[in-house]
Nucleic acid binder design. Sequence first.
DNA 1: ACAAATTATGTAAACGTTTACATAAAAATA
DNA 2: TATTTTTATGTAAACGTTTACATAATTTGT
Lengths: 345, 345
Amino acid sequence: MKKDINIHDIARKAGVSVATVSRALNNNGPVSEKTRQRIKQIAQEHDYKPSFIAKGFARQRSETIGVILPALVDEFFTEVLHGIDEEASRANCYTLVSSSHVQRDIVETLSDFMAGGRVDGVVLMAPHLHGNITSHLKKGKRPLVLLNSGEKISQIPSFNFDNYQGAFAVTQHLIKHGYTKIATICGPEGNHDAEERLRGFKDAMQQSDLTVNPNYFVRGGFTMKSGYYGFMRLVTQADRPEAIFAANDMMAVGIYEAAKSMNMVIPADIAVAGFDDIFLSSLLSPRLTTVHVPIRELAKKAVQYLFKMIDGKLETDSSHREEISTGLIIGGSCGCANVTNQAFL
Amino acid sequence: MKKDINIHDIARKAGVSVATVSRALNNNGPVSEKTRQRIKQIAQEHDYKPSFIAKGFARQRSETIGVILPALVDEFFTEVLHGIDEEASRANCYTLVSSSHVQRDIVETLSDFMAGGRVDGVVLMAPHLHGNITSHLKKGKRPLVLLNSGEKISQIPSFNFDNYQGAFAVTQHLIKHGYTKIATICGPEGNHDAEERLRGFKDAMQQSDLTVNPNYFVRGGFTMKSGYYGFMRLVTQADRPEAIFAANDMMAVGIYEAAKSMNMVIPADIAVAGFDDIFLSSLLSPRLTTVHVPIRELAKKAVQYLFKMIDGKLETDSSHREEISTGLIIGGSCGCANVTNQAFL
DNA sequence: ACAAATTATGTAAACGTTTACATAAAAATA
DNA sequence: TATTTTTATGTAAACGTTTACATAATTTGT
């Protein structure tokens, strides 16, 4: 790899000092229009690109933000990443991504990111953080924002969906249909989203004076498979529920599959509602009634906030926590009729 | 942001020179076991992390690879990214990702990545590269590999699926069912994958002495929508085709939707096959017959090759081109019976 | 015990920018 | 014109590592 042309070369060719070149190219300090033009001309001709790494070194800035995701598998994370990258690119920043693999866990990645200016700030997506991680988080010397984090961690701003409200609304909708025997397949224990959705469900039930039958409560793992088996457990009871609220759409998909294999018809035999509004749910037949979460918006807000922190434009009270509101999507799975299923056209 | 502790601080505390600290911490040159231990101890105590950016500056290495994707939207790209990140992390590298947005086009991003050591190498995913880009590509001073690129660009190694073979095989399968009136909804013009799949389709038809009726040829855009309308065009003809080969699964999904709205049954009324084996296709009913593409494997091979280039472990003949073979997935959509649909359990 | 070989450590240059400060040139003011 | 103000440019330090080379300490071989 032959050596790149550097700022000294340009300076020499233009007969000026490196300082002037730097100023001219960055439109920074004062430079006479004439020399500025000449320098830009020469830089262009020689296809000079300042070394990012030297620049970063000098300015102690990498113009990069780090993103740590629990995994890169599903649509949800893809959307998050896209939202982040979009917003970052708007700020002329790049996105360093790491999905946490086995060998490189969250804490390590985080301190790697934080240390030594690899990134200027970090977006950490962590649906379940156990206590010992949180202490680590605060040690970081660079700005950090949390996405979908569990507990309110003081000092670290976090951005979440209003899971509670969403679950409450969709449950309420099921109740309005007149169902009284409503079951839920909730998410994994310790997962913040799961807990909040469950809370919303329970409160909506209680508000309508409906009891949550313990037999109508199944814990799932946010996977299709767990939805499938959860459904099986629920409907093989003597007293079947009339409706099921699945804490996410993937589990609802599992429910659809299971219903099919049991020759049960949704919503005639049993109503279903989900949460997340993943693309797939719009293709189910009947379309799944679910809760829309504006992922892109979440990501954007988080990144915008992060940039403000990086630029020091923020009071560092920073116990900021934002809950982005969700929206109810009515499909046919809850029993509503006349719902068109072809939003994609 | 208070200043990080640096190597000089550690050196002072340990009463040795910075060189020794560097050697001790990187297990590089010779250091006596005693001092190495002491230095590591001290570094640990003070939570010292070498500055990545200074290190990169000194070594002219960023331990980062760049990935440029056309968009971050669908499952396919997610898988690619995951594969890349996984392999990169195995080599203790991070992944800088950029999906090409409007404001920051491929060429610019690429030269940004290349210039000034922001990354050590680049994986460029470019299903359609027009001529004037290719000249830019060669100017880059850092290793580059192409994914799913079109033309054979000399000097730049590229990794592709064997689209031709896959399309040939799946078409052949349709033919074996006895269909003679086979239509195709192909991909967008200029897209390399699309062209190759079309070629495979045509050759398979020809080999069985079947003609491709021009009315049975529709151009789609790899989107669900285009599959939907493509289907409509095909089946509203007087002489309907008996089977359709969609050049990707998303379009096949559109076909399913369209068939449903026409009250046509797959495969009884018309058989369908796709290409890509996306997750969604496994959930269709009947399961879509399609071509599996080992995305992770593609990504891994590309990255491994890239690292070899970075490490200079490679003869720079570099007209390397690899075609990764695909696999036929038999669902019920082609007419095959007794196909189970619940691989996910 | 002395030379030679090996091992451990230190010194200082290099990496390519930015930027505070100093200085020189030009423009504005008196 | 002499003085002040503004604008343009240059000088050199700083950023925190790595590493070639020099030197010092230790071990090995005789």
